[in-house]
Structures are given as C-alpha cells and as structure tokens.
Computed example of a mutant assay.
Amino acid sequence: MAKKINVQVSLDLIEPQDWSEMEKELISRAKAAAERAHAPYSNFLVGASVLLENGAIFEGNNQENVSFPVGVCAERSLLSFVVGNFPNVRPLKLAIAAKKREGASYAFVTPCGSCRQTINEYEIMFGKPIEILMLHENGSILRASSIKELLPFSFDSF
C-alpha cells in the first residue's frame, strides 16, 4: 500500500507598511528593472534585484528572443551575471516584480521551474539559503526563506 507524503510550505505575507528599508529598496529596483525588460513578444515585463552579502545590489530582467525558448528569465539572467562576476560573494535576497507592458499594476509571479532549480543550484553552491521576495498584485510581498519553500523536491541528489 502506498504511503502519503505531505509537504508543508510556510511563506510570510508582508504588508507594505511592514516592509523593511531593504525590502523597499529591492522591490523598487526590481520594478525599475522590469521597465527595462526586452519582452517584445509577450509584453510581460519581469524584473529582479539581488542583494549580495557585501551589500551590493544588482538588477536584471527578462530577455526574450524570437527563437523561443532562447530567451532568459529575469532571475536567471541576474543570478548568472552576479555569480559569474562575483563567484565568492553570496546572494542573500532576491526580489521579483512583474507586469504587462500596458498595465499600471503589477502581477503576482513566482520563479518558474528553471529559475527555481537555478536558485537551488546557488543555494547548494554557497551552502546557505537565498531569501525570495515576490511582489503580490495587492502590494504586499510574499517572502520565502529559501527556494526549498517553492521547490521541495529539487534536483540535487547527486
């Protein structure tokens, strides 16, 4: 007989008035990065910002390509850049914001499967979690303390 396995996820929902100064900065920079996204096909703009342990903050966005699926998500383009250029500096926090080009309001998104696995790879590499901040359409932040909250069965058992 099969046994049932239950996975429990615990995320924090943070209202705007309770955001830390760093959360405000990271979300603001993710929004700004989204505005610069190259998304001529989907018109769906995604921006990300990351805080490194040395205090530096970097931004990235989605980069689409007519030769689908050659495009790159905001999270992966950003993390590839920072880890490629600062291989010994751990990412601490990653913020994500998304919207339609013609819309004024933001949409709620979580990292896609490829991005989740990429974040997982960097958590393994640095031996510590990366906090993930996802802007919700109602203006709050959904915060995961680690990618393990969004990817409980990761591809890392080698």
Results as ranks from 00 to 15, higher is better:
C115E: 05
K100I: 01
I27D: 04
E121T: 12
P91Y: 08
L142T: 09
G113F: 12
V9R: 15
V82T: 07
K24A: 07
E137G: 07
F155A: 09
S20C: 03
N120K: 13
N6L: 14
I57M: 10
S77V: 00
V109H: 03
N61S: 15
E123Q: 06
E123D: 02
I119A: 01
G139V: 12
V83C: 06
C73N: 10
A33K: 02
R101M: 01
A144Y: 02
G103I: 00
G103R: 05
V82I: 13
A74D: 00
I119F: 03
V7W: 12
L13W: 05
S145I: 08
S114W: 02
L94C: 10
P129C: 10
V7H: 14
E123F: 03
F108R: 01
S67Y: 11
I124M: 05
E121F: 12
L133W: 11
A32K: 15
V109D: 00
E25Y: 01
S42R: 06
L92M: 12
G60W: 02
A32E: 15
Q63M: 09
V82Q: 08
N43W: 10
P69V: 02
Y122M: 11
I14H: 03
L151D: 12
N138F: 05
Q8T: 14
K24S: 13
P91F: 09
Y106F: 15
N43Y: 11
S105F: 11
I132A: 03
K31G: 13
I27L: 15
V83D: 14
C73I: 01
A32S: 13
R101L: 11
G127N: 00
D156E: 12
R29A: 01
A32P: 00
N62A: 04
L94G: 08
I27T: 12
E75G: 09
E121M: 13
E137H: 12
A104C: 02
M1R: 10
S157I: 08
E35I: 04
P40V: 03
A144G: 14
F86I: 04
K148L: 13
E53V: 06
A2I: 12
A32G: 09
D18F: 13
L45V: 01
N85V: 09
Q63V: 11
K3Q: 12
V7Q: 10
P16Y: 07
L135G: 09
A32D: 13
E59Y: 03
L45D: 05
